[in-house]
Design a protein around this nucleic acid. Sequence first.
DNA 1: GACGATGATTTTTA
DNA 2: TAAAAATCATCGTC
Length: 361
Amino acid sequence: MDDLMKQLHAVLAVDKIDHNTVVKSVERNPYRRLLQEVLLERKDIIRSRMNLVALYETEEPSSEIEEILAQFENPTFPLEEINTEKEVEWQPLERKYLDGVSKIKEETTMKQTQLEKDLAKSLAHSEEVLKKHRDFRPVDDRDFSNVKQSITKHFEQAKTNLRGDAATKILVLRREIEQQGRKRRNFDKNTTDTLQNWFHDHRTNPYPSDQEKAELAKQCNIKISQVNNWFGNQRIRSKQQAIRMEEEEQKRLAALAAEESEAMQTALAAASTVATSSNLAAASLMTLPLVNPTMHAMVLPGMPQNLLAGTAGFLPQTNYFPTAGQMALADNGNGQPFYTDFENFGLATQPDSEQFNNYLG
DNA sequence: GACGATGATTTTTA
DNA sequence: TAAAAATCATCGTC
């Protein structure tokens, strides 16, 4: 009994009911089992009451929701006001929107009907419960109206939530349609100029801070997300462009090298004749554009490695006229000696003239 | 209509 | 989680 009494006190404390009256009534009540059952049902009512308290803390249903739900009666296609030229193109989208709205409406109506049924059931049930209370405590009209109010409020809130959900669904649908139907617009010149200028002025570190992004967005009359998109695209694309230009430069150099190679082939043909005939006065040898070890090998095939030793990299074009430290190689065919500058020719050390002459045959 | 430019979105990376 | 990278979709021009 003690336990039961404790529970009862707890229940009564929540309800702010006059303890003494009820306790006396309970003490006289011989039907403990009934009492227990009633207590269990009281708990439900307490819960409802708690919900009611929570209810007062929730927001009022907004008029915005009702405005959106006006779509149920009079659906307006979200794209019409933006552009009326593409009506035909948008017909499937319009169909989709109207179907979507009517589906949401149908669902909402169904749920709302169910809520109303449940409300009626709950009210009837609560009345039954209160009537049972009369077995152990005084119950007056105020109790009935309180419980009814509590339950009604509870369902009203559920209904409000339902309408809120429906409004959210409509907004999501409209947004989806707008996304699909909207044609992307390029930014106007002012906007691109502003963004380009910022990018160029900060090209060493083209990362605007959040504040700078906000300023740019305001200045350009675009969203911050668009500023982010633009800079993201711009950074990656300017990088790609730089890579492309670098590749083109490489191609250009390769083409140049190929040209030189071709010139070298011509020189090689002539030099080969020179080498075999020992006639180094051949004009082609004198007009070689560049001199390097590879070229030596090409111009003078089979030339001993020790004669090529120590040569590295390209040397500037030289003139092959006699200067100090040069040696006469052979007759130029006109009875004059032909000189060459071994240093500039790409040879680090003066070759052994006898060996060289032997090579030339 | 082909095609590069461009804005947006999605996926990957650090 | 911001930025990079890849990808998508449209725009704009010829």
